[in-house]
């Protein structure tokens, strides 16, 4: 299954359309083709967590991570986003790349409809792996934690894994959260994330920030609410 080279994947993903007019309040920073390709390539080549798997992307935007996951052999991929405009872009991207992703519009901060709780309070979902580039929580404090918790709930009962990008400056905080929840979080890679100057409040032309690729292993989880 895993025949694609990093360069090929990067070449494809650089063609995926992103945000035309990003919305500040949703922290719609694009995931570049380079970042997405490196992230997904590492996930598949080092851990085999995409090929033949059921994959979920929370805050999927234009669908770049889901499209890349499909290119690397995922069996089923779903993407959730709150923004109708970007979901339309994601749908076009899927058609263009001839990949099949189930898209759902939902507000993850309110209720994640892709996870059900049974009568014992345990979560039920079909996913093995979550890949996501959530908001970093610079505009809405704590939204990064909301996404991370939703992702953990989506795979915990299947002993799955979550891969998520976060600002390195929030690392200690996130590791503490993981310990609190009873899941083990490790830093898989450190990346430089280039945020182009898309928003008026950016004084600089573009901004390099240090980002961690976190791996949350829920295989031995002892989830606490």
């Amino acid at each position: 299954v895993f025949g694609m080279k990093l360069k090929q994947l990067e070449g494809h993903l650089q063609q995926v359309a992103g945000f035309d007019r990003p919305k500040v309040e949703l922290e719609q920073y694009p995931t570049s083709g380079t970042i997405a390709a490196r992230m997904l390539y590492t996930i598949e080549s080092s851990y085999g967590d995409l090929g033949d798997k059921a994959v979920l992307d929370l805050g999927c935007g234009g669908g770049i991570l889901g499209i890349g996951a499909q290119m690397l052999g995922s069996s089923y991929t779903a993407g959730v986003d709150i923004d109708n405009d970007i979901l339309a872009v994601a749908a076009e991207n899927c058609a263009e790349f001839e990949v099949d992703i189930d898209l759902v519009r939902a507000d993850i901060g309110e209720a994640l409809p892709m996870v059900q709780k049974d009568k014992h309070g345990r979560s039920r979902s079909v996913f093995d792996t979550v890949v996501m580039n959530p908001p970093f929580g610079t505009r809405v404090k704590g939204i990064d934690i909301v996404f991370l918790r939703a992702a953990v709930d989506a795979v915990a009962n299947n002993g799955g894994v979550v891969y998520s990008l976060h600002k390195t400056s929030t690392r200690e905080h996130l590791l503490r959260k993981g310990a609190e929840w009873g899941v083990s979080i490790s830093v898989v890679a450190e990346l430089r994330y280039d945020i182009p100057a898309m928003y008026q409040f950016h004084k600089h032309r573009s901004l390099d920030i240090q980002v961690d690729l976190l791996r949350v292993d829920c295989a031995q989880h002892r989830l606490r609410a």
Partner: peptide
């Protein structure tokens, strides 16, 4: 367009 709208 194949997208269920699950907004609250």
């Amino acid at each position: 367009n194949g997208i269920p709208n699950m907004m609250p």
